[in-house]
Structures are given as structure tokens and as C-alpha cells.
Amino acid sequence: MAVCLWAELKKAHRRHDLPVVLGIGVLALCWANTMKLSDPASLAYGYSMVLYGLSIVNAVVMPLSMAVLGSRLWDVEVRGSACKLLYTLQSRGSLFGAKVALGFAEVLVAPLMELAGTLAFGRIYRFTEPLSPAALGWFFFCTLAVNALLFFFELMLSLFFENQVPALGCGVLFSMTGLFAMFMPPAFTRLLPWAYYAVTLSVGMVYDESTRISTFYPIPYPVWALAVVVALCGLVLMAGWRLVRRKEV
């Protein structure tokens, strides 16, 4: 398994995956930074505002980014017509396992950068809101779980169709509907797994139209939503493994 993972790492190096995964985190953080974080009225809600804003940013950026990561991970074998060779050199389990492990490591980077970025924003803009490690941790795990779900789903699509248009097309459509779902009734949002960046939020917002000031308040952690995402992750992974096992070369 270690050899297979090493081979995947070498492929990732040749594909220049590192700039791509870092770019995803940078894009999300740069976008979050365009919110009025230094506004004195916002400082008392600084961390909550960043977490709320990042969930909207994630709804747009992450579905497409995960499609890009998932598609690139398998497309390298499709373009090189390498599946036949690989299946004779290594077990299908080790190939799939190595790809899933590397993919998960890549998926991990963006939530970690967002976590670090949130802390950095707090220091740079001197938020007066007390830092809640539990809320930050919850945000990290939920973002990671939804990202992983989307990544495994897109990887599965890439496995199923040699043509990468369905995976990327789904990425664009998920980004779009994920953003729309943010402004739809919660009952509708809960139907879309790729919109769970909003469903798993532990921060609520009230916008006062007369003063044009947003206030944020904590809401109980929606543990059921995280459980749904984790369960879906498991199902999608199993479906992906089934596809790899049965794939004709």
C-alpha cells in the first residue's frame, strides 16, 4: 500500500496538485477577506461572521474544486490509457485505496487553511468576539466532511465516465445550486447534500434592514446533518469501490 501511495504522490507531483489545492484555500480566504471584517460594528461578531461568510464561499468554490481534484486524480489514468497496465501490476484495492488516501489528504488542505485563516483574521482585525474552539472545530469537521463527500462523488463520476464532462459539469451545477440553496427555505436546502455547508452551520444571522447591520448568534450544532454527510460519504465510497472492482479494461 505504501508503494502505491508513493506512486500516487509522484503522479500528484507531476500533475502539480500542490498549487491547485493551495489555490483553492487561497481563493476561499481571499474571497472571505472581501467581507467588511475591519468594520468596527463587525468586530464583536468577527469569528461568527467569518464562519458564516466562509460557508457561503464554500458553497460556490468547493463543489467545483472537489470536481477538479476528483477528475484530475482519475483522468491521469484515462489520458495515459493506464488502467489496463495498472490492473495487471497492482490490486484494484490498492489502486483505489491509494487514490482515496491521497485525495482525502488533498481535500484536507482547504479546511485546514480556512481554519488557520479564520484565526489569522481574528488577530489581524482584532476581533473582540471571544474565540470558541468548539465552533471552529465543528466548522472544520463539517467543511471537511462535505468536501470529502463531494470529492468521492466526483471521483466516482470520473470512474464511471471516461469523459470528464459529467464530473466537471456536475461540479459547476452543484456550485450554482449550492449557492442558490443558501437563499432558499431550509427545508429545500436539506435536500441537497452539496449545500450542507449551510445546513451544518453553527451560526445564525439576522440582518436589520433599517440599520443595515448584521448580527450573529450561535445555534446548536446540527449533529444529525454531520451524521447524514458522513453516512453519504460511506455510501459513495462503497459505490466507487464497486465501480473499480467491476470496471472492464
Binding site: 491547485v20 481571499c30 460556490v60 468554490v61 484530475r72 483522468d75 461540479g171 459547476v172 456550485s175
Partner: peptide, 15 residues
């Protein structure tokens, strides 16, 4: 040569 990377660049460009 990657099919997917330009699409991510386009999203960044759009943002």
C-alpha cells in the same frame, strides 16, 4: 493539458 484545471482558474477569474 489537464481538462479540469482551467475550469477552476475560470472560477477564480469570475470571483
Amino acid at each position: 493539458r489537464s481538462f479540469a484545471a482551467p475550469i477552476l482558474l475560470a472560477l477564480a477569474g469570475g470571483v
